[in-house]
Nucleic acid binder design. Sequence first.
DNA 1: TATTGTTATACTCTATAACTATA
DNA 2: TATAGTTATAGAGTATAACAATA
Lengths: 156, 156
Amino acid sequence: MLTGEADLMTRAHTTPQATTAGTAFTTALIRLTQHVEQVFGEVGRERGLTPQQAHVLCHLVDGPIGMADLSRRLHLEKSSVTGLVDRVERRGLVARVRDDRDRRAYRVALTDEGSRLACETHEAVNQRLERLAADLAPAERDGLVATILRALPPPP
Amino acid sequence: MLTGEADLMTRAHTTPQATTAGTAFTTALIRLTQHVEQVFGEVGRERGLTPQQAHVLCHLVDGPIGMADLSRRLHLEKSSVTGLVDRVERRGLVARVRDDRDRRAYRVALTDEGSRLACETHEAVNQRLERLAADLAPAERDGLVATILRALPPPP
DNA sequence: TATTGTTATACTCTATAACTATA
DNA sequence: TATAGTTATAGAGTATAACAATA
């Protein structure tokens, strides 16, 4: 059975609600998401990192972050972050540094080696994702960004 | 150090390459991706499914799929799909059915219970993702979809 | 030979619950 | 009391390598 775009558009006129096939919008979103994850996967694997480790390193590029903050940004439980950080620390890419102001807290910071790898990873991810915008005029691009940010719930 | 859009645009004139902060475009993309994954996670958890299981069920809504095809669509190794299907099969949500034309192949099909859960999950994911387009005019929405599909590499 | 799918193995990832220590 | 973080545990997810059966 063929279910191309024409079919989707035709049905959109008869039954406005999505039934089982989903809308073109959600389908596009989900495919986009898969692509982004695949980019993290490939870029990571080329450097001996899991996709999740690549994510963590990219978050640390802007400076050290506490575990709780990392947990919020990655939408993971604290204990999951503990394990994630354990593994990249074991590989010498990050270090836990005590927070001066709050003696309960650590700040996760990139080591020299981690910093190199993180920047490289961050660069590569950005380059590959930038390709998606290659055909867009600057105005279209800005509009797209604005649209996405407006639609997304505010960061925690 | 402030790195808002103005700064990004300024720097774009002096150094066209992103350095460590990434572009507004990639940042938006990555946040969008996180949100989509979170939706699959929440919708799944409310129904006792992992995010990956929710993905699988959603892919099966349109009809039975072979393991190799599932592997390509999910961008996973064959053996990973075997495990994934094992677990949803153990829960009675899908069944492996022998392919008539190719005696090596199985087709993974939803059971009655699996079908109910899959439709429900699919609906819920779509509803939540549709909210992102709530503010968009139909033309904007169509343009966005077209932009995404044009930018994405063709499905395998 | 190539493809479909599985098994065995070794990790990584993740959440839940219970805990310590500091605020 | 609330927050920052860890440990213990159990299960899920994933890739690699080697394999069987069919095309």
